[in-house]
């Protein structure tokens, strides 16, 4: 097949390291808010776990916004993100979700009134579900071949990765819970499936191993904290690997034509 001097048709993503870092932080924070509510519903026995989860959500949310602002070409214009709401733009949906999630998760730890705090936790959990999955939509609904070919996979992949990293953070905070272990096991099983590891490149292979088989094996031997550490590294590497995959995929003129 012919192309114009084999030059790329598409432009590679211009995003800097802050964007994949945000995918990791925002995803983990979002899933943590969900775990916090689930633990709270299950009973007072999980009070410490739920409190830790709320704090992880709040800290993650407040790290997310600076990361995204730093990546903008014009950071001083970050408020323009909330100038309009466009459901057809995953970036717009994400900006609004982060705004709601940031307000909810922060209120859930700082507001003195308990009813308001509980309501805020619910808002944080609902928007947290979007936080942990929408970044897959953000990458999938583009023209970059490797992203759009995996448009069905990316939201699930990133969601599983977010859930696993939230469990990992809670375990590393000293919460020993069979529920966390079961959820992390489920995520590790999903991440071990060949469908979640599409590229032969070293970074994606490494990310896949650290997210899937390694923590899976460690959990079967009840080495939960080691599994958690591996999962966190794997989850972070997964986001960098996918952005990197997009960068090289944009150079592939044959797929783009």
């Amino acid at each position: 097949m012919t192309s114009y001097h084999d030059l790329p048709l598409l432009k590679p993503p211009v995003w800097t390291w802050e964007v994949p870092a945000y995918f990791f932080v925002g995803g983990a924070a979002g899933a943590a808010a969900v775990l916090g509510i689930a633990a709270q519903i299950a009973g007072p026995r999980n009070e410490k776990l739920a409190r830790d989860a709320r704090w992880i959500a709040a800290i993650g949310a407040n790290l997310s916004a600076p990361l995204l602002i730093a990546d903008l070409g014009r950071p001083d214009r970050f408020l323009n993100m909330l100038r309009v709401f466009k459901p057809q733009s995953p970036m717009s949906v994400g900006a609004w979700t982060l705004a709601v999630f940031g307000a909810g998760s922060t209120a859930a730890v700082f507001v003195p009134n308990k009813t308001v705090r509980n309501l805020a936790s619910l808002v944080a959990a609902a928007s947290g579900l979007v936080m942990s999955t929408y970044t897959g939509v953000l990458l999938g609904a583009t023209t970059i071949p490797v992203w759009k070919e995996h448009v069905d996979l990316l939201p699930v992949h990133f969601g599983a990765s977010a859930l696993a990293s939230a469990c990992a953070l809670l375990e590393l905070r000293g919460n020993k819970s069979d529920a966390l272990n079961a959820l992390a096991l489920g995520a590790a099983i999903f991440e071990s499936l060949p469908a979640a590891n599409v590229e032969e490149k070293l970074l994606m292979r490494l990310a896949g191993a650290l997210s899937g088989p390694v923590p899976l094996a460690l959990r079967l031997f009840n080495k939960r904290k080691a599994a958690a550490a591996s999962t966190l590294l794997g989850s972070l590497a997964t986001r960098f690997a996918w952005v990197e995959a997009g960068r090289s995929s944009a150079k592939d003129v044959k797929s783009a034509l």
Partner: peptide, 13 residues
């Protein structure tokens, strides 16, 4: 504000 999302959503680069 230079978010860069248009760059990866243009089918023609």
């Amino acid at each position: 504000n230079g978010c860069g999302y248009c760059v990866v959503t243009c089918p023609f680069g």
